[in-house]
Amino acid sequence: MKKHITLALCAILLIGACKKEENILKDPENPLIPIQENNSPVNGTRVVKNSIVYTQIDQELAYNKFITIDADNNGKNDFYFTTVLVGKDNLSHLFFQASPVSTSGAKLMLNNSQELVIGMWGKAIDAGTQINATTAFNTIWSNFMIKGMLLDIIENPAQTKTYDGPWLAKIDKYLAMQIIIGGKVHYGWIHLSHIANEAKMRIVSFAYNDVANEPIAAGQTQ
């Protein structure tokens, strides 16, 4: 009797573990890091003016920190931001990266002119740049399969640091995004900033056009 009870309990625990695993997404390049689709996103101030939905979050991204964004506030995350430490040629690279959540259908605009150790550089665009289906030269709309790198902090064996990346010492650049609402594409932007020689970035705000397939200007809030 005790043997049967023990076996039954093990079966229940195994089924529960399987169901729990179904709700956890895995970063395909870092399979040991669980990415929860409905992990609590950062809270922010959300304002809707005309067709533009704008949210200010002002979050600090630094080593070993994980930030998720639910752009359309539907209870499911669209993007996540984190750091990845990579060693190459006797140097350590701390990459700050952005990626769509795999099940969201979201995309980011990347610069495909140079492949990195992992992923590609995110495309840093100026305020006022129109964001739509058309991509600029050497850019692509990319899903979760290719990570968007924002900043690279490079350290040599003497612990001397150098910095690289499209957001290096930039406080007014934007990352173009696409999100899916009701099966339709909505264009938007994410405002990211970096102060020279700091080992951290800020995710300042984001916005999207609530009208499907209509463009939005980087930095537009109304």
Rank of each mutant, 00 (worst) to 15 (best):
D72A: 07
G122S: 15
A106S: 14
Q222V: 09
N209Q: 08
N112W: 05
G105I: 06
E115K: 15
N64K: 12
L151V: 04
Y187A: 01
A217L: 15
T45E: 14
T160Y: 00
N64T: 04
C10Q: 11
I125L: 12
T6D: 13
V101F: 13
E21P: 04
K147R: 07
T129G: 07
E155C: 01
S113K: 08
N74C: 05
A8N: 11
K20Q: 08
L175G: 06
Y174I: 02
V101Q: 07
I171A: 15
L61F: 05
N23W: 04
K161S: 07
Y187D: 01
I125P: 04
N39V: 10
K76N: 11
I69G: 04
N143K: 10
T103Q: 08
L116R: 02
D78V: 14
L108P: 02
A212S: 15
M109E: 11
I5D: 15
T45N: 13
A218Q: 04
L116Y: 01
V47I: 14
T45A: 09
K123G: 09
Q130Y: 01
N143T: 06
D172E: 09
Y80K: 05
I203C: 00
K200I: 12
K26T: 10
M201F: 04
I190Q: 06
H194V: 00
N30E: 15
A176K: 01
D152F: 01
K49N: 13
A169G: 02
I24P: 08
S104C: 10
I118E: 15
M201G: 06
I57F: 03
K147H: 14
W121Y: 10
Y54L: 11
E198L: 03
S205H: 01
Q59Y: 03
V117D: 09
Q222W: 10
K147A: 10
F79Q: 00
L91Y: 04
D78A: 08
C18A: 09
D27W: 11
I131Q: 10
N30Q: 14
V48Q: 07
L32A: 10
K200M: 10
K184W: 00
K88N: 14
L108R: 05
A127W: 03
A11K: 07
H194A: 05
D126P: 04
M149L: 04
A98M: 11
F206Y: 15
M109N: 09
K123H: 14
N73Y: 07
I5E: 12
G44A: 11
Q222C: 01
E198F: 02
A136P: 00
E60S: 13
I131C: 03
L168Y: 13
G122V: 05
F95G: 03
Q59T: 14
E29K: 12
D152S: 12
